[in-house]
Design a binder for these strands. Structure first.
Lengths: 358, 358
DNA sequence: CTGAAAGCGCTTACAG
DNA sequence: CTGAAAGCGCTTACAG
């Protein structure tokens, strides 16, 4: 927007535009859609005129005519973001603000990718079984030609989505037993990265602080922690594994269990990106200095809220974008992998230090 | 979904449906749209057949034909949710998970209301000035016939939105100097409710714990606090007002300032729904018992994360729904108020008690 | 109460 | 390289 202020244009049709340019409607349309049959000069004139007049082809008409000439490679133009939410549940407590946050990050990532391919995103939330009808209506009315599915995705949910006959991709976690196409963060790799980082700093007694272990990813992270310990040939000790970290003050009690009996760990990896009390406070409350007495690697969503803390960052936005890419490939009839793993990042901060400096 | 499993139907057109029912296309359409000209029996047959066959009128065709017969009262069918986000900013830190949360709550509320009127919601995020074009394209292509605007809404943003010639409503905070239509929470009323509640319990020395004072609503809440003290004829003391509550451990320091010099307050109202360390911990850390030594009223989004804590609840979801209502009224050419205030709720918990019990 | 017809704004196959 | 024409699926004014 060079003017800094948008000008209001009247709504023009292709026909009016074509007349303005002394072109046939047909040539105008071909030029606008970049068809090679129209010469460069004409194409340029058309594009320029469209820009100047703020002309955009009517979307409804475009969609309608598409029903006539079914292309072999249908382009994605409108994607639905299906957010499967618990019925009565609010966004509080455990599901918590973190749930809200990852959903929004996925949404942002998806929207961004969709924008780049000139498609739009329809947000639909399903929390009761009666809501399935609305998503189905949207599909059947031609408003959505592909679905991104996120939240509490299970077999029943997928049976609905499947029945609509549109391409679909699950974003994030799911609890489906059948084969599904999904894009998720590589949770195991998060544990591996953390252990690798700490091992690189000379730590050999690394503790694992896990979540409720009710979700698949939580077990995945614990398994990957164990595997990484073996890989790097580190000491193992069941006392260095604590799970069921609560969201409130009693977090302190769980962390304290690491220090009941010697040998104490020299580093802690906390796998939950969820609502952990800020780490500084958590360890402060136990009179630990960071990284004086102990090294710490936490977990966070994109961007991060606790600067300076070493952490595994979970790029949910990227997962959203990647999901859109997968969906587009499906829509285009191209081969797509069943599962795409989005790798987390290790961001080294000041909370982890060489073992020799402790 | 009585079957528990969605059946897949082929895509049928109105014409095919009409033929199935031995009706003219015209009668079928009228019946489907509830036009009074068609008799009850026919209407019922049509509706039933539509349900059975999973028939939904093609949306694109509907939109297209609407351009021909412009109704005086245009119904809202597709609404854009314009999320004005800071460019480089992630959802971390101060803007924090709370920002993500309120946005998602507004979105949920809006989607819910829209669903009830059989309309859909398109999510658009604008973070750079170059992104304005995408929202404009969406409007000009006929994909969006009304806008809900949320986030960092300022005069420049509104000048863009205005230029698209569609109805629009701001959800939540804004910093516009011009006259705008908006739906926001009644922040002042939150302070009033809290003071009223505490006064009812006999408290006369009530402290105010505020945020960064960089947003309009934060000042509004402080002013309303002062006003409520006057109204209830309570003691005032500038030491009982502390603002700039940080998001980390140093929160304790700010709270401690209430207790530097006597007389101490007997109750605290915390106005920020944002990332306050859970109250229990905050006051625990200061060796206060709740409500033993002091009464506390906090602030939270819908639903609440700290059960048992007395709080002012901010119904962001409701604000989203109300915004949709306003937008629909505008689209229908009906008169709409410039500003609609959504009232917060006071939820009494165990953290506030009668002064006589302390 | 119902039917035959026009046309919304586009895109593309078909002739030239 | 270009034009005249068909038609996507609907809704509504216009006759009957």
């Amino acid at each position: 927007m060079t003017t800094g202020q948008a000008r209001s244009h009247p709504m023009l049709t292709s026909e009016q535009m074509a007349r303005k340019l002394s072109l046939s409607l047909c040539t105008f349309s071909h030029a606008l859609n970049g068809h090679p049959r129209v010469c460069e000069r004409t194409r340029h004139r058309v594009m320029e005129a469209a820009r100047e007049n703020g002309f955009v082809a009517n979307h409804a008409a475009r969609l309608l005519v598409r029903a006539r000439f079914k292309p072999k490679h249908s382009r994605l133009s409108q994607v639905g973001f299906l957010f499967l939410d618990d019925a009565g549940t609010t966004l509080g407590e455990d599901a918590g603000s973190s749930l809200g946050l990852w959903c929004l990050l996925l949404l942002r990532g998806a929207e961004h990718a969709l924008h780049d391919m000139d498609a739009s995103l329809t947000f639909v939330r399903v929390s009761k079984s009666s809501h399935w009808a609305k998503a189905e209506r949207l599909t059947r009315s031609g408003c959505v030609d592909g679905w991104l599915v996120a939240g509490r995705v299970d077999d029943e949910a997928i049976s609905h989505v499947k029945s609509w006959g549109r391409p679909w991709v699950i974003l994030g976690n799911h609890s489906c037993s059948q084969k599904v196409t999904s894009v998720d963060l590589d949770h195991g790799d998060g544990s591996r990265l953390a252990i690798q980082h700490l091992t690189g700093l000379g730590h050999r007694r690394i503790a694992f602080l896990g979540g409720t272990m009710t979700h698949g990813y939580q077990n995945e992270m614990l398994q990957a922690y164990r595997k990484a310990l073996r890989k790097f040939d580190l000491e193992t000790n069941e006392q260095w594994i604590q799970t069921n970290l609560p969201t409130d003050r009693s977090q302190y009690e769980v962390v304290k269990r690491f220090f009941v009996r010697k040998p104490y760990p020299t580093a802690i990896f906390a796998s939950e990106p969820g609502p952990i009390l800020p780490v500084r406070d958590l360890l402060h409350g136990l009179d630990w200095k960071l990284p004086g007495n102990i090294s710490f690697v936490g977990s966070e969503m994109n961007g991060g809220q606790t600067p300076g803390i070493s952490r595994v960052e979970w790029p949910y936005e990227e997962a959203g974008s990647v999901g859109v890419g997968t969906l587009a490939r499906m829509a285009g009839g191209r081969k797509t992998p069943l599962f795409t793993a989005v790798k987390p990042l290790l961001v080294a901060g000041r909370s982890s230090a060489r073992i020799s400096d402790i």
